[in-house]
């Protein structure tokens, strides 16, 4: 216990405390620092550019969280029904593959797929939609949705596997009873499956919401926050502020705000799931 706590303190709590400390100073990372009080926080909460960046993170929740959870549910139900066939194993492997591939590699591959001469545009041209082809990651209106698509692709497999493992735990007699009562597929899903995997859904939502709010690698590789600031997210902005702008204090303040935002989003989800489980 004691060594573990020591490690936790050294590698988690100490950096966290230092981040909070830095956020109260103006510091370029090397030279002398000056006490700034809460002015860095005032900047984070009042600068429209920084608020827009936090807004982008919330927009990403749709494609990083809502889509993967819904799609994961649908796919998990289908795979469970065909669980005996070889197709189920293949589907599970293919869907989980993005979890195994490093996000950096995935980001590079997707930026090729979505480039002006990439497979996505070749396909659109082939089916007669040549008029809407564009550099998806370089267009102000499509860059953020395109980044979201990459995130959805990565996370749908994770959700599928998590939800499927939850479904295998459900007592088969419950399904039998439902069928005897004359429940159709939809009733079976809403009355038996959904309530039984409530905890797994909560885990999925939690993990994916954190992935959306704290996203960094996909954006860094595919767009670097551009064009303009169309795909800038807090994680990347913290990095840019600290290492390019050398405003370590402001970067730390944004990091602390990001922690608070993540907790404010995730804790209610946890509480909701726990309440449901107790019932």
């Amino acid at each position: 216990m004691a060594p573990a706590l020591g490690m936790y303190g050294l590698f988690v709590l100490r950096p966290l405390a230092l981040t909070v400390q830095y956020s109260l100073y103006q510091w370029d990372g090397i030279g002398p620092s000056t006490w700034a009080g809460l002015s860095n926080y005032a900047t984070v909460l009042s600068d429209p550019a920084l608020l827009a960046i936090i807004g982008n993170a919330f927009k990403l929740i749709v494609s990083f969280s809502v889509v993967p959870v819904l799609l994961g549910l649908a796919v998990a139900v289908v795979i469970r029904r065909i669980s005996a066939s070889r197709l189920a194993l293949t589907a599970r492997t293919v869907l989980f593959l993005p979890q195994v591939i490093p996000l950096v590699a995935a980001g590079i591959a997707w930026s090729w797929l979505l480039s002006s001469t990439g497979v996505a545009n070749q396909f659109l041209s082939a089916i007669g939609l040549g008029g809407i082809t564009r550099a998806w990651l370089g267009d102000f209106s499509t860059a953020l949705p395109a980044v979201g698509l990459i995130g959805a692709w990565v996370l749908v497999g994770l959700c599928t596997v998590l939800l499927m493992s939850g479904m295998t735990k459900v007592d088969p007699s419950l399904y039998e009873a439902a069928r005897i009562d004359g429940a159709g597929l939809w009733r079976e899903f809403t009355a038996v499956t959904l309530p039984s995997i409530r905890q797994e859904i909560a885990v999925c939502v939690t993990v994916t919401v954190i992935a959306a709010l704290a996203s960094f690698d996909i954006v860094y590789i595919s767009t670097q926050g551009g064009p303009g600031e169309a795909t800038m997210v807090p994680g990347l902005e913290i990095y840019e502020l600290a290492f390019s702008h050398r405003q370590v204090g402001l970067a730390s303040a944004l990091a602390v705000v990001l922690i608070v935002v993540v907790l404010a989003c995730v804790l209610p989800i946890q509480r909701l799931a726990r309440k449901g489980g107790e019932r």
Partner: peptide, 8 residues
């Protein structure tokens, strides 16, 4: 941590 001197 904050009791220490200013960073840098």
């Amino acid at each position: 941590a904050t009791a220490c001197s200013a960073p840098g």
